Simulated assay, not measured.
Amino acid sequence: MSLGSSSSTNVYSIDDAGFKMFGRWGREILGAVFLLYWVFVTGSGLLSVSIALNAVSTHGTCTAVFVVVAAVVAICLNSIRTLGRITILAWVGLFSIIAAIFTVTIAVGVQDRPASAPQTGHWESDYKLFGTPTFLEASTAVSSLIFAFASVSLCFSFAAEMKEPKHYGRAVFSCLSLVMAIYLVIGIVVYYYCGSYVSSPAMGSAGPLMKKVAYGISIPGVMVSTILLSHLAAKYVFVRLLRGTPICHRTACATG
């Protein structure tokens, strides 16, 4: 099976779906937006790696150096031919991220108060079930929720590289159920204990020491996330330019 023809629908990426729904303009517009978005998200991933390295090293060197290091690692590993061969990295990244966020969650629960809260006198969390945000604050919150589920646009690419694409629905349902559960548990617990004193990023909410511990644990996770996202963005360009050519079928367009 080759990429771009994972099923009878002959869809590899969201641009193919756009073509089937809206014709050529749908393909071009959705393809351009897809590529631009994931390039920016990859940049965000590189920044996240630099933030983690800065936290662990207490700003041991210029942030630009850490970004370059992350970029070099991503370039070296995102050229692996198929998603199936990045599976081991994905598992490492998954357990790394989960371990890091649960470390922070447990830490804020057992500590007296979050790091950014007043450190003297009596303190209670000022969490609110219903707030009165400004339009800007509400828009930012809604955008964060949308961004958290923005990877839906990658569904086509993942399904296209599965040995049994018909099982994708079951896989994505299981994945999103787990993600939703983790989002809710982490978000509710951290906000309950920290209130308005949640740090941004939240990894710093439990103080300097736990910040280093959590970021240290998360480095493989954010690095693997960056590798996967840059891989998919690059694969979109590769398949789009070389689909139907002997090169595509002979090299990275072959799954396995």
Rank of each mutant, 00 (worst) to 15 (best):
A159Q: 06
V68M: 09
T255Q: 09
L242C: 02
T251N: 12
M180I: 12
V72Y: 07
I98T: 11
S116L: 05
R240P: 01
C248P: 05
L228D: 03
G187Y: 07
V56A: 12
V33C: 04
K163C: 11
S125M: 08
H59F: 15
V73D: 05
K166R: 12
G169Y: 06
K166M: 00
T58K: 15
I98E: 00
A55R: 00
I97L: 15
I80N: 06
F156H: 04
T42M: 13
A252Y: 10
A252R: 08
C76Q: 02
A206Y: 04
G256C: 11
R85F: 05
S205Q: 11
K235S: 05
A138I: 01
V104F: 03
T63H: 07
G169H: 13
G60V: 07
S6Y: 04
R243D: 08
G121Q: 06
I29T: 11
Y127L: 09
S174C: 00
S5K: 05
T226Y: 07
G169F: 07
F149H: 08
H231L: 14
G26F: 00
T42W: 08
L209E: 11
A181W: 04
A115P: 00
S5W: 01
T9A: 02
G204I: 04
Y191C: 11
I188D: 11
S96N: 06
T105W: 02
G4S: 03
A214P: 06
V224K: 01
K20C: 07
F19Y: 12
C194K: 02
Y215W: 12
H122F: 06
G207T: 13
P220F: 01
V198G: 10
S218K: 02
R250G: 10
S6L: 09
A206Q: 02
I97K: 02
R24P: 01
D16S: 12
V11Q: 03
W38V: 13
S143M: 14
A71T: 09
P118T: 04
L241N: 12
A160Y: 01
M180L: 13
F22C: 11
S230L: 09
A206L: 06
V185Y: 12
V33P: 05
G45R: 06
A214N: 10
A234G: 01
D126K: 08
Y127N: 02
V39C: 15
S205C: 08
S8R: 10
V67M: 03
G60M: 11
W38P: 05
T120P: 03
V92L: 13
